[in-house]
């Protein structure tokens, strides 16, 4: 068995927080991460998801050695992150979605030059890597512009390039697509997917954008109030929470809503009665059976099956936990 690239055991972080004002001031302890035990193998791509305040960012900061754990242990790339923070930094690339690692007043190219020096890349190594990143992330048009003049989409691409310049073994992305438009998001996701295929990079992603997870992650870890509530393949998660699937059919002729299929119910029907939407549970029936039942009653011209979004899955998972 290979050594995991990230392993934590009972990882816990508590913060002291002052609440109230004046005489009612009191110190209380908040547990941001609570006994987290994880094992991540090299080359895996993990979606690390949870609501705001679930402890995602705190976990990442402990993995990179910026925060000291209150209890438990953590090893990343075989190193102790807090004690060997600087050594570990050579193997990790981090994008904090809301923070910049670029030099605001300098042309973007200068940031890469400084980072290449910081990571002790040989000149040839760094220029090759920069042209690769520049081509794939389309940085060329603004390499000479000061960072402060970049648009958000341009800057995020630059941030990702900055984090990946030294070919880290692990890339940790904390909300990398926050605030980006659809095209920019897709471009970034394509790049990350290809980077992983080409270099075997381990990817750990926190996000609120379920599109990121669907496009990039094979394994999903869901945290809630600092605890791991699910750890498994993306498909397992969908099966676990048993969400309904949606079948949309376009009929050849207008038809009254088809309500007499026992395993599916009509959840939508447009005014003409041509497009009808059915919901069914994959544990009771299959999409094919529902389609056959509809076809028996009316001629079907076109169809679409909608997979549940992870957002709804996570919501259901939360509901299940709190119930």
């Amino acid at each position: 068995m290979t050594e995991p690239i990230i392993s934590t055991h009972g990882l816990t972080r508590r913060f002291a927080r002052t609440t109230g004002r004046g005489r009612s001031r009191a110190r209380e302890t908040v547990t941001a991460v609570d006994g987290l035990t994880l094992r991540i193998e090299p080359g895996e791509s993990i979606g690390y998801i949870g609501a705001n305040g679930a402890g995602k960012s705190t976990t990442i900061k402990m993995l990179t050695g910026i925060l000291t754990p209150t209890a438990g242990s953590v090893r990343v790339c075989g190193l102790d992150p807090v004690r060997q923070r600087k050594e570990l930094a050579r193997h990790i690339g981090v994008v904090f979605g809301q923070r910049s690692q670029l030099w605001w007043d300098l042309p973007l190219r200068d940031s890469f030059e400084i980072l290449a020096a910081i990571h002790r890349l040989a000149p040839k190594q760094s220029s090759d890597r920069l042209s690769e990143l520049s081509e794939r992330l389309q940085l060329g048009e603004f390499l000479n512009a000061p960072v402060r003049q970049l648009s958000l989409g341009q800057r995020m691409r630059a941030e990702v390039a900055a984090a990946l310049l030294h070919r880290p073994r692990i890339v940790i992305l904390d909300e990398p697509t926050i605030g980006l438009d659809v095209v920019s998001k897709e471009r970034l996701r394509q790049f990350l997917a290809s980077e992983r295929t080409d270099h075997g990079t381990t990817l750990l992603l926190t996000t609120h954008d379920m599109g990121d997870i669907e496009r990039l992650c094979e394994r999903v870890i869901v945290v809630d109030r600092g605890r791991c509530v699910h750890d498994g393949a993306l498909a397992d998660l969908a099966a676990l929470v048993q969400t309904e699937r949606i079948l949309v059919v376009d009929l050849a002729q207008p038809h009254a809503p088809i309500t007499d299929i026992p395993t599916a119910r009509v959840v939508g029907c447009d005014q003409t009665g041509v497009r009808q939407t059915f919901a069914f549970s994959p544990s009771d029936t299959t999409a094919a059976e529902v389609l056959a039942a509809v076809s028996a009653r009316a001629e079907v011209r076109d169809l679409a099956i909608e997979e549940p979004t992870i957002e709804s899955i996570v919501r259901r998972l939360y509901e299940g936990q709190t119930r």
Binding site: T64, G65, I66, E87, R90, R99, S100, I118
Partner: peptide, 17 residues
């Protein structure tokens, strides 16, 4: 602001840089 996290995740001494 917490941006010090970025400085701390680099393989160089923060004070010297």
């Amino acid at each position: 602001s917490g941006d010090i996290a970025v400085d701390l995740s680099r393989p160089v001494n923060v004070q010297l840089s």
